[in-house]
Design a protein around this nucleic acid. Structure first.
Lengths: 245, 245
DNA sequence: CGCAACCTTGAGCGTAATCAACAAGCGTGG
DNA sequence: CCACGCTTGTTGATTACGCTCAAGGTTGCG
């Protein structure tokens, strides 16, 4: 029996019609639910956006949540004088758009052309009303997100530039692996400015630090959007000191 | 009809027997549910701990979640060389103890004598099985927590020492107000070291910055555990630049 | 090919860290 | 009761890491 037959045993024929654009499978928070929850199907909508587009802005009313199907997205917070902090980079399978007090807490912008799966959301209650399984998954994802955010606090508050950059590269590599990509010819879809604003550094420091790692033969850099991790162990040594990493 | 009669209409007589130690009312995530959910009652347990005690350690298996009933708690992450980041201060009504992959992501220690309400938790599913309302509340709290964590990333990554300290004092004041305390003779139950590890600074810088604010007559300091905010507006001016604050 | 955006490299500076000494609060015991 | 030591906080001097300002390279697109 071919593998495809096994898969189709779990995904009833015709179910792909509703989520045709989506090849996330079990990476999606709604995996296996779009078929069973008509409420979820009713409120979803496919979107495509070009690179450098704004999905929504910090302070906008939260009317939708999103799952990233392909491409990459950044989430950022801005200070009135222009200082910026990127609070997350998103890759296929990640979702975003939960806000507090009915307002988005960050701006979401695309780093590349993306496809999104959008769910209209009058209130959080509405979207989860149809499925208790969905709510449970959302809660688990939020716990993971919060865990990740706390890691990032340690990085921002207590790590040196060198440690931050090494940690960043390894984080990208780990997440690439999780989505089924190779760990080492690493795709870096964000600019130096984005990296700087994510790590709490300046572009110059990011550039200098990457050059430093290159000179130590721990990485090579190809055209600003690709990095080879030549010595993962050494990088982990630098990034370590991290709590039970 | 007195207000107390209205309240008792919603809180059946005898229900306080099970949560006698708890005067959190609607601040607790389980407010109104401990009466209706026998599952929740069955797994809860009251605890008292002295100051400077460890509730659990980063990396321990997650076997319980906690609601803080009285006192104050700090959550921290440690690096192998001793660098530390405090990822949260908790006050009555806050809950904590959610971990990722079955492990606590931070150490929880008491800042003062505390009373806790502990819920045993073989898995997250177990605790929420009895009440969909409970799950919904937990999700909403997690969203708020994540929002707060992202604020903190902006602080750690992009604010000056002065801005960090002003922001910290105002945050304490705002949370005191939320729990019904006065905003200004501010109780500061944590040490300078704890403040430093929360803001990504050193104790010396925290001390110098507080002295600076004192000299500008924006605050006064009484015995290291109490601060008067003399000019909230000026402090907000300093802390501002924050996203839509 | 030419231009603009992005990245790298260099020089000098500034904020917060480090190192060090001192002061204040507090509990203990002589 | 005060002397003592210990912990915690403050203040000062110096250092260093990363920021700022500036110039020079790359890259990629029209």
């Amino acid at each position: 029996m071919p593998v495809s037959a096994l898969v189709s045993a779990f995904v009833p024929a015709g179910s792909r019609m509703d989520c045709a654009c989506c090849d996330l499978d079990e990476r999606a928070f709604c995996a296996g639910l779009a078929q069973t929850s008509s409420a979820l199907r009713a409120i979803r909508h496919d979107m495509r956006m070009e690179a450098q587009a704004t999905v929504f802005r910090e302070g906008d009313a939260t009317d939708h949540i999103f799952t990233l199907v392909s491409g990459a997205v950044k989430l950022s917070k801005l200070m009135i004088d222009g200082r910026r902090q990127i609070v997350g980079f998103l890759f296929p399978g990640d979702f975003f758009g939960f806000g507090h007090n009915g307002l988005y807490g960050y701006t979401a912008e695309t780093l590349s052309p993306v496809t999104l799966c959008r769910f209209s959301l009058l209130s959080l209650d509405t979207v989860v009303a149809g499925s208790r399984e969905l709510e449970r998954r959302l809660l688990n994802r939020m716990i993971a997100e919060l865990s990740f955010a706390q890691e990032q606090m340690l990085l921002l508050g207590r790590m040196s530039a060198r440690e931050k950059v090494a940690h960043f590269l390894l984080m990208l590599s780990r997440r690439a692996t999780q989505r089924g990509d190779v760990p080492s010819p690493l795709s870096v879809p964000m600019s130096r400015l984005d990296i700087a604003d994510y790590l709490g550094l300046t572009i110059e420091t990011v550039s200098r630090t990457l050059t430093g790692l290159k000179k130590e033969r721990l990485i090579t850099i190809n055209g600003n959007t690709q990095v080879d991790l030549l010595d993962m162990q050494a990088l982990e040594q630098i990034a370590a000191g991290g709590c039970l990493c």
